[in-house]
Structure formats: C-alpha cells, structure tokens
C-alpha cells in the first residue's frame, strides 16, 4: 500500500547533506537525525506508490523484511514526537 509522510503541524525542519534537524516549534527540543535515520526521513516524504520500507530497502539494496521493523519503529517514534504525520490518509 502506498505510504507517504509529511512534516507535522507545529513542526519545523532543516535538512543538510548528511543530517536532518527537526523540532516542534516553539517548544523544542531539536531532534538530530543522521545516518540511516536521515535517509528514512527523506524516503518517508517521497511519493512513488511504494511503502517507506520498500523505498528504504531499495536505497540500501537489501530485502524489505530486513528493514521494515526499524523503519516502522522510526516512523512511529517520529509521529509520536510530533515531527511527522501520515499524509496519505
């Protein structure tokens, strides 16, 4: 099922080449996403008819089942912290 996320209301984010800095504003704090977390963030906001896990698996060249758990955990955490929200529902 296609899956896409967007920045949550009340959140802000700055993306650099290697790192994503996201926050609830004005409350804070600043959350630092680097490495795989930054890549999941970027893939979560893409829109190509696939799930986020499928996009991340394709990016790293690994089976979807290998990354699905970590990707879903990250997305659940980001939504709980109020920096991402599901955009396709």
């Amino acid at each position: 099922m296609p899956e896409r996320y967007e920045l949550a209301d009340g959140a802000a984010a700055v993306e650099t080449v290697t790192t994503v800095y996201a926050a609830r504003v004005p409350e804070g704090p600043v959350l630092v996403l680097d490495g795989a977390a930054a890549e999941i963030w970027r893939e979560a906001r893409a829109d190509d008819g696939r799930t986020v896990a499928e996009r991340v698996a394709a990016l790293f060249g690994v089976p979807v089942d290998e990354v699905r758990g970590d990707v879903d955990d990250f997305l659940a955490d980001a939504c709980a912290r109020g920096i991402l929200r599901r955009a396709d529902r």
Partner: peptide, 25 residues
C-alpha cells in the same frame, strides 16, 4: 533520533528560530 544538547550548527538554530518565532506570531 537523538535530542540535541549542543553542537547544532548556528545556521540551523537560526533557521529553526525563524520558524519558532513565526509560530508564536
């Protein structure tokens, strides 16, 4: 995903600051 205690580049802090001030407005 970690909470930044320090080391956030100044340019990032300032841009998030603009966003924070706009939200207050």
């Amino acid at each position: 995903m970690t909470e930044a205690s320090r080391g956030v580049p100044l340019g990032v802090t300032v841009r998030l600051g603009h966003a924070a001030v706009q939200r207050v407005a």
